[in-house]
């Protein structure tokens, strides 16, 4: 599983980094994105929905792990 950490990055860096990483991903592979703001989580959710991908949101102590299935 690939992982990127976009905690603490300001808008729209989290979603751009995720978008760039999704381009490199091979079908069947998972991408785990670590975010710590609700805005970034919502933006990435919209990106994933627009690409018809599945995503699981795991709430950790003070951040979210977003697991995207390509």
């Amino acid at each position: 599983m690939r992982e990127i950490d976009v905690c603490g990055m300001s808008c729209p860096e989290p979603v751009i980094r995720t978008q760039q990483e999704l381009k490199n991903i091979i079908p069947g592979e998972k991408l785990r994105v670590l975010v710590d703001s609700d805005t970034a989580r919502e933006n990435i959710t919209r990106l994933v929905t627009s690409k018809n991908l599945k995503m699981e949101v795991i709430k950790e102590e003070d951040y979210y792990a977003l697991e995207i299935e390509a």
């Binding site: 808008c11 729209p12 979603v15 978008q19 805005t39 919209r46 990106l47």
Partner: peptide
């Protein structure tokens, strides 16, 4: 809502996201 005038246009240009 995270309303942002710059962000609105940026998301359209960058991701075709009209939210």
């Amino acid at each position: 809502t995270r309303l942002c005038i710059a962000g609105g246009i940026r998301d359209v240009l960058l991701m075709r996201d009209f939210h």
